[in-house]
Computed example of a mutant assay.
Amino acid sequence: MSTLRLRSAIITVLTSVVVLTGVFASGGAGAAPTMAPAGFIPAQLVGPYASDVPPSGTYLPVLDGFSDLRARHRPVIASNLAQVVRINNSATAAQQRDAIAINYDDRLVSLSEALGDRLGTVFRQLLAAGRLPKVDALAGGDTARAGLPLGTTLLEKEIYDNPRPFVVAPASIKRYDKPGGHLYAELAGNGSYPSGHTNMAYWKGALLAYWLPELGPQIIARAGEIGRSRIVLGVHYPLDVMGGRLMGMDIAAARLRDPGFAALVDQAGVQLRDQLQRAVGVPLDEFIARDTAYLTTQQAVNEHRALMTYGFDVINPGQVNSIPPSAAALLRSRFPGLSDAQRLDILRRTAIRSGYPLDQAGRNGGWLRIDLAAAYAAKP
């Protein structure tokens, strides 16, 4: 994509944000402005903000471990496809249904399953009723402001141009879709790396966990399940999902580290907790303790760890990198009394080792190692 086309795309996206803020500011389409909680004003959403564009202009440097794999690690690429076939062919009926629902639902709605049986239902009801306009503005739908203008994976997919599993091996992939669905027809012509669903699941999941740190491990585990669902459908490879995760973590950390944008995130969190509290009528921690949990904390940590590397072996055992310092912002609400240096230490202590596929040396590495579920479950 040329620089001119990239600039044009940014202008188009920001123009869309201006149009959509009319809905957000009034509390959602069809909501009574005098009754619904206030949304952001257009100027707050448009910005621009320092975190709108990554330092290098794109997320390609963070994702480019994929180029090395294609050039020098063909067995990893072969295993990448073999794992899709295995996961797709062995998917249970429940996994198939969940994957289909995830494909068509907003990632924020899919993530809300992690909030528990009753709290998740309350969250979805409030969101649908326009009672969470600030959350919706930042993290709802494909035009969520926290992901715009460059947090999508459109540019990266075009550049890496990696054909999807069901295109490469059509006879080996089972297709799962809803009656009259268009899943495979829509995806056949674009690249697979990185996974956009996973990218959105992780940056939206990181924000939702930031707002509700009591359920952080469960929310991040659910983000991992959303990534796995793309493999279940045969539309993405494990490496696509892993790439989507590291990109999503980078995006979320950038937003939380940007003081201007972080102020919006904090306002949305206050509104979310206030509306949930009003809806359930008791302190949130008390309601969560009584609710039927999606997963226990330990189950969430164990599941997410298993979904981080998909059984790949370490391919660069001598590789050296560190957890990016900016990632410390991801834990600010979970450990408000700690310094960034102390939060970064928690991320280091709970991280996986370096050297797995896609993990790079130097300043572009380390994102793949972050286990945010384990970090949320850690002791100070």
Rank of each mutant, 00 (worst) to 15 (best):
L6V: 12
I231E: 05
D291Q: 14
D359V: 04
G27P: 00
R278C: 04
I10M: 11
D266Q: 09
D291P: 09
V85G: 02
N364G: 05
Q44V: 04
L239S: 01
A114C: 11
F66V: 10
A375R: 00
P325W: 02
D340C: 02
D64W: 06
N88H: 05
T297R: 13
R72N: 15
I352A: 06
S192H: 05
I219A: 09
A29L: 15
M1T: 12
V18I: 14
Q96L: 10
S67D: 11
P213R: 13
L338N: 06
I77W: 01
A91Y: 07
T152G: 10
A78L: 13
Y202C: 05
L20R: 03
H197L: 13
V301S: 03
L119V: 15
V13Y: 04
A114H: 03
I352F: 10
T143C: 09
Q360Y: 11
Y202G: 00
R257F: 03
S172I: 01
K379V: 14
A128R: 11
G30D: 05
V320W: 04
Y310F: 15
P194A: 12
R334Q: 09
Q96R: 15
A221E: 08
R118L: 11
G318H: 11
R363T: 14
P54D: 06
R353L: 08
V62K: 00
R273K: 15
P179D: 05
L132H: 01
A306N: 10
L276C: 01
I77L: 11
L115K: 00
L183Y: 04
S192C: 05
Q125E: 11
A36F: 06
R175M: 14
M247D: 07
V46W: 01
A375E: 00
D161N: 15
P170G: 09
V84Q: 00
L108W: 02
L246S: 07
Q342G: 10
V232M: 08
L115F: 06
A327K: 01
P380L: 08
A71C: 06
D274S: 12
Q277Y: 02
T15A: 13
G318V: 06
I11H: 07
R363N: 11
G365H: 03
Y184M: 10
G337F: 08
S322G: 10
